[in-house]
Simulated assay, not measured.
Amino acid sequence: MKQFKFTGKMATLIVSAAACLAATSSQAKDYVTTPDTQARAYSLSVSSDSPKKTIYFAGQTGHLDADGKPITNFDAQARRAFTLLDQTLRKSGAKLSDVVSMTVFITDVRNGKHFADIRKEFFPDGKFPGSALIAVDGLMGQSMIEIQGVAVVDGK
């Protein structure tokens, strides 16, 4: 697998493009999947016919525990990022199951399989958000993962 290094304006352009793509496909709740996408814990598309409350959430990392101490293990960082993301969404009146699109940045492409397995823990019903997984050279602090995306509130 080929890795690319993006910095400065190019990285900003890629992140902005991902956010725009997520925004245009964010009115959601119907899932298009294949056996392969289910195995990797994401959907090809998520869609809906009606407008609903949409939440665009900023990148969430998990490099510090609840006491502010560093987390140095990828799996623990990923779980912490999902926990913090869930807390953020709840403050906005949403929950993880409302996430329809996410862009995930990881510093080691070999952790992609670990991430898919962890994401399955947080989306146990198999209704996975559309997703992009991007390997980068570095993230803020000692982060090994950052998750950003879009949630659409069901209203149920």
Rank of each mutant, 00 (worst) to 15 (best):
A17R: 10
R40W: 11
Q3V: 12
P35V: 04
A41I: 07
L96R: 01
L85Y: 02
R110K: 15
T34P: 08
T103N: 12
G138S: 15
A76L: 09
T83E: 15
T72S: 10
A23E: 11
V104C: 09
A17E: 14
T88P: 00
V46Y: 03
A19Y: 10
M140H: 11
Q87W: 00
S97F: 01
F123K: 02
M144E: 13
L89I: 05
P70E: 09
P35E: 10
K2W: 07
Y31L: 05
S43M: 04
M140S: 13
G68D: 06
L21E: 12
F57R: 05
K113M: 10
H114I: 08
K95N: 09
T54R: 14
G59A: 15
V99W: 01
F82M: 13
T7L: 03
K9M: 01
I106A: 08
A81S: 13
G141Y: 10
L13Q: 11
K95V: 09
S48K: 04
R110L: 12
A18N: 14
G62S: 08
R119P: 01
T88N: 13
F115E: 02
K69P: 00
C20Q: 15
M144W: 02
S16W: 04
A23G: 10
T107L: 06
L133V: 13
G59S: 14
Q27A: 14
Y56I: 07
C20F: 12
